[in-house]
């Protein structure tokens, strides 16, 4: 479990992991968070690319954050290992970023993707978002898995596409909630400002909680129920995007 202060006395950021299968919109979600919050929070980004520094480049070219604050870590074709079994290269990258741009409020760590079982080690991140998309099919949420069941926030992304892929978003969200014991699920589309605002609120609220020391990172393995859902009424437990 990470300490809040480092031995050399420098401050430590809230480290937020973004996991989920390839193509579900992790990089886009990070770009959205940067765009929405770069004025309010001091941000940094670490990407775990499968084969290229594509994600880092995409984010740098999105112009949402100083390119220097976005760094890529190689995963040797083991994106799962990189965020879970051996977090050393990522941890070094996060700490170096925190040192080079001190003080940072939030460092976002994008997983290289992999499958439904790839989740972050609590040694690397304080909290994590797991991203699914409607295009992956309405059944995915029901199938569950450690990321779906226990991530701090589950995002059902690209709801704007639901009508084209025949997915019933409220049903998919309800399935996900059932698999998650009431932990928050957010139906998101970058084309839906209301859902983007909810995402922003969640990140801000979580930042406040983690930085206030009120959160214990969890990840697969038995976990105590989370109690951060209704902090000041800002935390969304479930947000259903309106259909388009």
């Amino acid at each position: 479990m990470p300490d809040t202060t480092r031995p050399d006395g420098t401050t430590r950021s809230f480290r937020l992991g973004v996991a989920g299968p390839v193509g579900t919109g992790k990089s886009s979600l990070i770009a959205t968070i940067c765009r929405e919050l770069a004025d309010e929070l001091r941000l940094g980004v670490i990407t775990n690319d499968i084969y290229t520094d594509e994600d880092a480049r995409l984010l740098r070219s999105a112009g949402v954050l100083d390119p220097e604050r976005i760094r890529a870590v190689e995963t040797g074709a083991c994106p799962h290992t990189a965020i879970r079994d051996d977090v050393t290269p990522n941890l070094i990258a996060v700490e170096d970023l925190e040192r080079d741009f001190a003080p940072l409020d939030v460092v976002l760590v994008e997983s290289g993707g992999d499958n439904l079982t790839a989740t972050f080690s609590p040694a690397l991140v304080d909290a994590q978002i797991f991203v699914l998309d409607v295009a992956g099919g309405g059944d995915v949420a029901r199938k569950g898995g450690p990321g779906i069941a226990r991530a701090d926030l589950l995002v059902v992304n690209k709801t704007d596409l639901a009508q084209y892929v025949g997915v019933d978003v409220p049903q998919m969200v309800a399935d996900a909630e059932a698999a998650r014991d009431g932990k928050p699920v957010l139906a998101l589309s970058r084309h839906d400002p209301e859902s983007v605002a909810s995402l922003k609120e969640w990140v801000l609220a979580m930042t406040k909680i983690v930085r206030g020391g009120g959160h214990t990172p969890v990840d697969p393995g038995p976990m105590a129920p989370h109690s951060h859902t209704d902090e000041n009424g800002v935390m969304i437990s479930h947000t259903h995007a309106h259909s388009h």
């Binding site: 870590v73 190689e74 995963t75 040797g76 083991c78 290992t81 990189a82 079994d85 051996d86 977090v87 050393t88 290269p89 070094i92």
Partner: peptide, 12 residues
Amino acid sequence: GRLPTGGHTQSA
């Protein structure tokens, strides 16, 4: 090789 020292990022 499973020692957590970032070995998976190396190809020598």
